[in-house]
Amino acid sequence: MPDSPLPLLFLDIDGPLIPFGATRQLFPNGYPTYEAAHRVPREAEAHPLITRVDPAHGPRLMALPCELVWATTWMSDANAVIAPWLGLPDLPVVAWPEPTAEDGRDGLHWKTRTLLSWAAGRPFAWVDDEITDHDRTWIEHHSPGPALLHRVDPRLGITPHDFSVLGKWLGSSETVS
């Protein structure tokens, strides 16, 4: 992990960038779809849900005052498929430990402890669709630095409101070293 004065932004893909689970009532004609703004590799073109990812999110993410980090089960596929679609460079990827029988027994999301460890005291925001109040409380009591756990509605994916919340928090004096 490079040393950086910027806070980290841990970003999940399924839910925040690829919306799912909405009813026809919310999207009568199905989810909006998009075309890539530039050339993408075959891996990206072949993904069945890639057209749900709004390529405009790439510049919005790059404009945030943070270091972007993939925090997703997509692992290296995030850089092979999603990053090119969004026009992002390869980003660091959180490596998840092997699951154990203890994971989730205390009500924490299985990513929570790993992300706190990865942050190593740096301020961080975590964008995911599975964050709970229990995760927020646990981080509040265990994080040595500021943290924002931001839950995105998976039916909508990340919205302008979400970007606004993230931008304000990431740019606040509390998060800048």
Rank of each mutant, 00 (worst) to 15 (best):
S143M: 13
W85G: 01
T114Y: 04
P160E: 14
L108D: 05
L8V: 07
E45P: 00
W138C: 03
P97N: 09
P146M: 11
H109P: 00
V69C: 07
S143A: 15
L91R: 03
L26K: 09
F10A: 05
C66W: 06
T175P: 00
T33I: 12
G15I: 07
P19K: 10
G157I: 10
S173C: 03
K111A: 11
P16Y: 01
L68C: 05
L64C: 12
H150L: 14
V40W: 02
H161F: 13
P16G: 02
W74C: 06
P2K: 10
T73W: 07
L64R: 12
S172R: 02
L156A: 05
I131F: 04
R24P: 01
A56M: 03
A44H: 03
V165N: 05
A95T: 09
E102I: 01
L6F: 01
W118N: 00
G145P: 08
L61I: 12
N29K: 14
A95Y: 02
V69Y: 14
D103T: 01
L11W: 11
E67W: 00
I158A: 08
P48G: 02
D54H: 13
D3K: 11
D106V: 04
W138R: 00
M75R: 15
T114M: 06
F10N: 03
G30E: 09
P16L: 02
G145K: 12
D135K: 13
D133G: 12
L11F: 03
A22G: 05
T33N: 12
W118I: 03
R151V: 12
S143N: 11
E35R: 13
A95M: 08
L26N: 00
G21R: 03
R155H: 09
W126D: 04
A46S: 13
N79Q: 07
T112R: 02
P99L: 07
A46M: 06
L116S: 14
E35S: 12
P48A: 03
F27H: 15
R136Y: 10
K168W: 09
D103Q: 09
A125V: 04
A37V: 07
D12N: 06
L6G: 00
D133A: 15
T100E: 06
L91V: 06
L49H: 10
G171D: 07
P99M: 08
V69R: 12
G171C: 08
D153K: 02
M1F: 01
S4N: 15
M62K: 14
I50Y: 11
P146N: 08
G30R: 13
L26I: 08
W74N: 04
P160K: 11
D3H: 05
A71E: 06
A95Q: 14
